[in-house]
Design a binder for these strands. Structure first.
Lengths: 249, 249
DNA sequence: GTGTGTCCATTGGTCAGACCAACATACCGA
DNA sequence: TCGGTATGTTGGTCTGACCAATGGACACAC
């Protein structure tokens, strides 16, 4: 004989909330639509206003509706997720000040480095190593290393195990691939000096090392140092659109 | 002149839910404990039963409590479950992990603090001070400080003089303003004279101080400490004394 | 025309008190 | 011992009311 399951206790407010939510999901109620006044709606559904209000309370917690006195209860548009907002922001990045973009990137990547140093798995580490070696190979072969560079940083952010951070970084990185940036970068990069290239590799290696050793502070410092070099050159260069209120420090 | 922000509508049930949630979080109410009967509890808290029930409705959604007729309302909350439930509900709304959002915020705001400490003008500083005092006033008055808190952090980012950073931060902050966050935050608050509240103010004051002294490292550290503590208190539901099975994420 | 003040209807927020149904408990009788 | 029964407790629901904020209509002053 099977054991009997406890019968489900059907609570009225939940049912009411379900009905309303169903209308929203099915599109009968669209964002911006106003629900009938509570008194009226309660009457329509044959429940008391208290019961209806408990139902609305739930929907409000889920940010499906929003109620304001004397204006009624309206169906809210689902809030834009942060990652979607990044995409919107990224679309406008092109005409932003490159310094600003780099600073935001520094913010994200420094944090990513911290987290990576705390959370990286051994497989993460292997992948990161691999990217580093690929980068080294490109450089020593005298080939263009842009892709390998981006790949390395991408892998680094991956080690942080934070999807939002990843898409945020991706948005910023993508914004840095525009034509403006390419001319900018190439104008910043001097002759591919041997020593410069060794430094360049070493900076990446330092990041890799810090992450391997689970040293969050070192990882962040390494990332900052790496990006700061570009940033410094940029602030010193900067002529096309001279920023007025530059640093006071 | 700054634009005025909409003042926050303080709803009684949310506050009530916050108080009860705070008791659970602090260990004054432990799993298995029974709450007083609704009529009695409502009388104790000087709210109507309807209001109290809306609050309990929220707590039930979080699966913090469970109510069964003629048996009373009992605290469920087997530790970690509440946190998971929070993540599930918040995540269900916009498919985003609150912890991830917080980490991205930490990234942006830490950077903002660095830049602010380097670039803040005297007017910036005055504005920041003002926000700090407004926050202090709210707290000492025992009022809701959410708006003032957000305003302070917003002003801080403003001091960095980086528009991209500002809009990015705004996007992240927007994701932290829903009713769920509000309820959770209110469960963190204590009495105005409480040590918790003094620390809370002091953390903001430390940020303000570091920015005033042009100390980028200190500013970043202060911001990180503040956010770290908030996140920690937000996600830790074990009473401070009985912390046996720790997660090592 | 602009804007300011006043009144009024609407609407969500809150409250007080009541009844219902289910359940626990204790008591009762076979 | 065990089923039946009376009773009080408790959450679930309902009713009706008042409060406070708001938008709109309208009159009035500049």
């Amino acid at each position: 004989m099977d054991k009997f399951q406890p019968v489900e206790r059907t609570l009225l407010p939940n049912k009411v909330a379900g009905v309303i939510m169903g209308r929203v999901r099915s599109g009968q109620l669209r964002p911006g639509d106003r629900l009938p006044p509570e008194r009226e709606l309660a009457q329509q559904m044959h429940v008391s206003r208290a019961t209806l209000r408990e139902a609305l309370k739930v929907l409000r917690l889920f940010e499906i509706i929003d109620a304001v006195p004397n204006q009624g209860t309206v169906v809210k548009a689902p809030r834009q997720a942060v990652r979607d907002q990044w995409l919107a922001i990224a679309g406008h990045i092109d005409d932003e000040d490159p310094v600003e973009v780099l600073e935001v990137r520094e913010a994200l990547e420094a944090q990513a480095a911290r987290l990576a140093a705390q959370r990286r798995t051994d497989e993460d580490l292997a992948t990161l190593h691999q990217s580093l070696e690929a980068l080294r190979a490109q450089v020593t072969a005298g080939l263009d290393s842009t892709q390998a560079d981006i790949a390395f940083h991408h892998k680094l952010v991956r080690c942080a195990h934070n999807r939002l951070l990843l898409v945020s970084m991706a948005a910023v990185l993508r914004a840095m691939t525009g034509p403006i940036w390419q001319t900018l970068m190439s104008s910043l990069a001097g002759e591919p000096d041997d020593e410069v290239m060794r430094d360049y590799i070493e900076q990446h290696a330092a990041i890799d090392r810090a992450v391997a050793q689970l040293d969050a502070d070192a990882a962040e410092a390494a990332v900052r140092a790496h990006l700061r070099i570009t940033l410094d050159r940029l602030t010193r260069w900067d002529p096309p659109d001279a920023r007025s209120e530059e640093e006071h420090a």
